[in-house]
Amino acid sequence: MSDLIIVDYGAGNIASVKQAVWRAGWDADLSRGPEDLLQADRILLPGVGAAGTAMDRLRAGGYVEALNEAVRKRGAPMLCICVGMQLLAEELHEYGVHQGLGWVAGKVTRLEEKPGRRVPHMGWNKVHKPAGGAAPPPGILDRDTFYYFAHSYEMSGLDPAVIAGEAEYEGLVPAAIRTETVFATQFHPEKSQVEGEKLIAHFMRWKV
């Protein structure tokens, strides 16, 4: 069994994620089915595309119960990336309204376009820890850090107590959240070069 299981539900940038984990110094395996999550030390939930479609695939693969069992009951650390983070919300508003995992209060809604704010939010943006928010795993966001973003939808209506990172883009965009043993990023650590590899390494060393 490898150090990390990547949930392979057909809606992730699996190749990039696996490679970044390897560069950070660990081995990752793809899940062959939900039962692999039950034994996993650590779990990574990637995601690209429409959140509703991703949620349907996660459900159809039988992964929802396995994630509940492994992460919420057993307390395995989980890193969620981009749409993987958005799946934690209660409601996903993209091509209709879909139900998310509901692990955090809030919704996924389209980023508002404004003067100076083109959508998608695309490129490298600086992430800072908000005052009074959640603590990220040790070592992560100890200082403001540039990470790569590529998204048209954002988490909204979050409890400020779960927000572990924010980015400024003509208004604040939730960039990272932390709840119990889950750390989730709207940005892409697997495409954020050295800083992304450091984030993955800190997640892999996180003792919950």
């Binding site: 429409a50 998608p120 998204h151 048209s152």
Partner: peptide
């Protein structure tokens, strides 16, 4: 876009 998202 429907499958991989507009950002892709």
């Amino acid at each position: 876009a429907r499958r991989f998202g507009a950002q892709a």
